[in-house]
């Protein structure tokens, strides 16, 4: 248990009759960036709220830093920074005042507010009222609030929501920085696989409240086998030829044939084969499976 910043053991959670989280056993190793992946409504936010004790979990199912959450609430919360759903910001206060208020609540120096504003690139908007902030600025302020106490564990619920491409890259780099240089553990939720792949060291995939996959990013890559998509004239005879030659055609549309990607060399050989047999190959590219297909894959293998 000591190796995990977060560990849930068969966690169940219901709102009334509706089961939101079912038999969830998360294991988030210390120092990892744990990508918590799932479609909207999968139970990601609920799980994060349970980890913050905002929603009461049954006893002995949630352990943070090896301690049971219900009986160690304050001690645990001292070591966590969080951004849940939309950032919680007082619109009538300025960005800086929002952070100063947090400093008051946490009993830390108010100078930290300015430091955080520069970190998230809001120094110039420090004295602007937060309800005049754009969605991206609010998100940055939310991240600043999560970081202000210099917590060991960060829970970030879709932190790149509403950010422009630059902002997304900044947040991504910030997370990598925090984990590698400052040994923070980060649990970051997202519904975008591509987003998680770029930062996470570990991944958990949740759907309908159940954990479908959990492991390192490399283990996920093994599951998420890339495909080779081929655009070719005369699809029917081309696919017949490929099958004859021992290729496994996974899907075939009017324009595209997909086979499993093996290596660049194999792709070249396949191309040569088609051309030598008189086909015109207009395009040939590697395609990773999207999240939906990955879900199907994972549910099928389970």
């Amino acid at each position: 248990m000591g190796n995990y910043a977060i560990e849930t053991v068969g966690l169940n959670f219901n709102f009334g009759n509706q089961t939101i989280v079912k038999d969830l056993s998360l294991q988030v190793p210390n120092g990892s960036i744990y990508g918590f992946l799932g479609p909207n409504g999968a139970g990601k936010t609920t799980t994060i709220k349970i980890l913050l004790n905002l929603l009461k979990s049954p006893s002995d199912q949630v352990f943070i830093f090896g301690k049971e959450i219900n009986s160690n609430r304050i001690a645990i919360l001292k070591r966590i920074g969080a951004l849940v759903e939309q950032p919680a910001i007082y619109g009538h206060l300025t960005g800086k005042e929002n952070l100063v208020n947090r400093c008051i609540l946490l009993g830390i120096k108010k100078a930290k507010a300015d430091e955080m504003l520069s970190l998230v690139g809001l120094a110039e908007a420090a004295n602007k009222k937060a309800n005049k902030y754009s969605l991206g600025m609010k998100q940055r302020l939310g991240i600043a609030q999560a970081l202000i106490s210099d917590p060991e564990l960060l829970l970030l619920d879709e932190p790149t929501n509403g950010l422009d491409p630059n902002g997304i890259i900044e947040v991504r780099n910030l997370m990598i920085d925090l984990a590698t240089k400052h040994q923070k553990t980060i649990l970051v939720s997202s519904h975008l696989l591509a987003e998680i792949e770029r930062t996470a060291t570990h991944v958990g995939i949740i759907n309908k409240g159940q954990l479908l996959f959990q492991g390192t990013i490399n283990e996920l890559h093994l599951l998420s086998k890339p495909m080779l998509e081929i655009e070719v004239d005369n699809i029917e005879s081309a696919s017949t030829l490929l099958i004859k030659q021992g290729y496994e055609v996974t899907t075939k549309t009017e324009k595209v044939i997909s086979v499993l990607f093996v290596s660049s060399q194999k792709s070249g050989e396949l191309n040569t084969l088609l051309i030598q047999n008189g086909f015109t190959v207009s395009s040939l590219y590697q395609q990773r499976k999207d999240l939906e297909n990955l879900f199907l894959d994972i549910t099928n293998t389970n």
Partner: peptide
């Protein structure tokens, strides 16, 4: 002030 800004969750996630 908490309802309007949706800040209850923030308030109760503080170590207080």
């Amino acid at each position: 002030i908490e309802h309007k800004n949706d800040t209850w969750k923030m308030l109760f996630a503080q170590p207080l």
